[in-house]
Nucleic acid binder design. Structure first.
Length: 378
RNA sequence: GGUGGAAUGGCCGAGUGGUCAAUGGCAACAGACUGUAAAUCUGUCGACGGGAGUCUACCAUGGUUCAAAUCCAUGUUCCACCA
């Protein structure tokens, strides 16, 4: 029920186009996966997610464990039914919350003692806990419970996280194999190692030896420079199994996605399109646009003339600015709509270019057009 | 007509003799955001100057005082109540 097939590859860069077969449908890669932490991609209905061609979305184990909790999800018949999303879902293990909620917890090899960020009550996170909850959620792809560390960090701390991540991957797999339904769900391993080449290599070897159906690169996009991120991806490119899907967790930024694809990454997820959309920072073919800027008050052009989304085809920058300035709900909706469609389209266009054998040209065009610093001024 | 109260920076609103260019909030302007504790957060916000600082400011005018947004007088406007 789970299979990955590479259908085209860029001979210059190694970028791949593939098909990931899951119980809820085929995913065409490279793919960008919108984040829907709490059983909703913020501001978007499932119907709208389909309209922007989302192939798969994320859910979060930790957040859904706290609210609404496993009983209600189970009673609903799983996460797909609960939120009425019939396409594939990937669930994060709660590993990232070990990182982002670090202040609220104590980490040992055994487990993570944590306080709920909602009411302060105690809970214990562990590989077994995560596999149980992801089983309840019934996601198509579950993730191993891992430990992500901040950057900068020491080699020593990064090494400890690598060791623990391997230990937890073994326990995740053991529990998963014994209790989860392999016909409905696949479990991916996660490589850690921060910005240290030796640790990345070690982690990749340890994790890939466990023979997961797919592998993720975690612990990036947490403070390192883009150059460091790309260097790590270059290091991992030749170590990670060629025939398995590769997922770069938490990325993200448009140019990071393109560069990631060029380094053999097949899957991405990130809150950036949704969160930045709600906060008024828009991505366009020419770079970033802070739609709240005064300079857009009288700008009656489309946000991104090259974009095919509902927002760009129907509304002006002046109107989007107005909605954003007023804090209107529609602002969050239209801005999220565009940012997600824009990001999804990057992966679509890259895929098309790979299949048609013109990926190097695609990436050159993207880089010459998308400028990080010009804020959308051409 | 009478009695009482109020007037503060774009707006609301603290501040009742020096430490006040004046707390807060809002608006505005700019920035941040990468496996979501985020429809959030940060900075700026009288003028000039790089800065030290200088100037103009708390309805108006006059006064008291070494010193006034703060006290007094008069005026103006607004509010409440009574006729």
């Amino acid at each position: 029920m789970f299979k990955f097939k590479i259908i085209a590859e860029c001979p210059v860069t190694g970028a791949r186009a593939g098909e990931l077969i899951t119980p809820h449908g085929i995913i065409h890669t490279p793919v960008f996966m919108p984040v829907g932490t709490l059983a909703t991609v913020k501001a978007m209905s499932p119907h709208e997610l389909e309209a922007i061609k989302s192939q798969i979305i994320l859910g979060n184990t930790y957040h859904l464990y706290l609210r609404p909790g496993p009983e209600i999800i189970a009673q609903a018949g799983g996460l797909h039914k609960f939120m009425n999303w019939e396409k594939p879902i990937l669930t994060d293990s709660g590993g990232f919350q070990v990182f982002s909620l670090a202040r609220l917890q104590k980490i040992t090899d055994e487990n993570v003692l944590c306080r709920s960020h909602i009411d302060g009550s105690q809970l214990i996170m562990s590989p077994e806990w995560s596999m149980y909850m992801q089983g309840v959620l019934g996601s198509d792809i579950a993730m191993c419970f891992d430990q992500c560390v901040e950057i900068p960090t020491t080699h020593e701390k990064a090494e400890e996280a690598v060791r623990r991540t391997t230990l937890w991957a073994e326990r995740s797999k053991e529990y998963f194999d014994a209790h989860n339904d392999a016909n409905r769900q696949a479990l991916f391993g996660i490589v850690q190692g921060s910005v240290y080449d030796d640790l990345r290599i070690r982690s990749a070897n340890e994790i890939t030896n466990m023979n997961f159906p797919g592998y993720a690169i975690g612990g990036l996009s947490v403070g390192e420079s883009h150059e460091e991120m790309y260097r790590i991806l270059d290091v991992l490119k030749d170590i990670m199994p060629h025939e398995k899907p590769r997922y770069l967790m938490g990325v993200g930024y448009p140019s990071n996605i393109v560069e990631g694809i060029a380094r053999g990454i097949d899957m991405f997820d990130c809150v950036m399109p949704t969160r930045n959309g709600r906060n008024g920072t828009m991505f366009t073919s020419f770079g970033r646009v802070n739609i709240r800027g005064q300079k857009y008050a009288h700008d009656f052009t489309a946000l991104d003339p090259e974009c095919d989304c509902y927002t760009c085809r129907n509304f002006t920058r002046a109107y989007l600015r107005h909605l954003a300035m007023c804090g209107e709900i529609l602002s969050a909706r239209l801005c999220t709509w565009h940012n997600l469609r824009f990001t999804i389209r990057i992966a679509e266009q890259a895929r098309e270019a790979i299949i048609e054998g013109r990926f190097p040209e695609y990436i050159e065009r993207f880089k010459s057009q998308f400028h990080d610093d010009n804020h959308g001024e051409d």
